[in-house]
Amino acid sequence: MKRITLAIIAFATFTTTMNAQEKNVSTTESKINWKGYKVGGSHEGTIALKSGVLTFDNDVLTGGTFTIDMTSINTTDLTGEYKDKLDGHLKSDDFFGVATYPSAKIVFTSVKPTDKTTYKVTGDLTIKGNTNPVTFDLSLEGDNAKATLKIDRSKYNVRYGSKSFFDNLKDNVIYDEFDIIADLKL
């Protein structure tokens, strides 16, 4: 009886492993945009995907891992001196400290289908060495995946201009939440 039970467990494990498939996400064709908000306006730009993998079981999304190149932060709504200043400030220790933390990472911890092409994803997001859970919807059609994440920067020790950490900022407040809009190509 023990041999039969062990054989069934081994077969089930082998079958599950055989059905699991990892698909690399193209780092050159995928686009990741960000948008940050402040009193009286916003700024936006791009950031590069360093690596990405989505895991499937029988064509159903079950997991994923993504690494973002924080050194690639790029502002797209400004030009010249102002763009250079903002890019440098975002890379500095006031914001993302890319010299110390050159990458950010998200590892999916839970993936649940909500309909034929959409999943509710929860993952552990690490920015500046701080890890917190985030939940977002991911739509998947063919070789295209799209997701929008709303991230609270105060949870990752990104303090500059945050009313969560400083009083009397008045019109100099930079809101804690920023958006990441990912258009991924498999």
Rank of each mutant, 00 (worst) to 15 (best):
F165N: 10
F166E: 14
M1L: 13
G97Q: 11
V121L: 00
K31S: 14
D137A: 10
T76W: 07
K155T: 04
K91R: 12
V134M: 01
V25P: 05
T76S: 12
T122P: 02
F56H: 07
N74K: 12
N58I: 01
E177T: 07
L186V: 02
T46R: 08
D124I: 00
N58W: 08
L49C: 04
I151L: 07
P133Q: 15
E141D: 13
T131K: 04
L149A: 10
T126W: 10
V107G: 07
D183Y: 04
A7F: 09
P113N: 11
D93V: 02
K120F: 08
G41D: 09
G64F: 02
D115V: 00
F56K: 01
S110G: 08
G45T: 01
T118Q: 08
L54V: 05
D57I: 06
N168D: 14
F165C: 03
T118S: 14
F66L: 10
V121Q: 03
V111D: 13
D57M: 12
P102C: 05
T5P: 02
K146F: 07
F56P: 01
L49M: 03
K163T: 06
F14Y: 12
P133N: 13
I180Y: 07
T122C: 05
G129W: 09
K83M: 04
L169S: 06
D167Y: 02
D143S: 15
P113L: 09
S162P: 00
I9F: 13
L90D: 10
K116M: 11
F178R: 01
S26M: 04
L54I: 03
K185E: 14
T75L: 06
F14G: 12
L184I: 00
W34I: 00
G88H: 05
V158Q: 13
V107M: 09
N74R: 06
K31E: 14
I9D: 12
T67D: 13
F165G: 10
F14D: 09
L138K: 08
K31V: 14
G45S: 04
T28C: 08
T15H: 10
L186W: 07
S30E: 05
S42N: 14
T16I: 11
F165Y: 14
T76E: 13
V134E: 15
T62I: 15
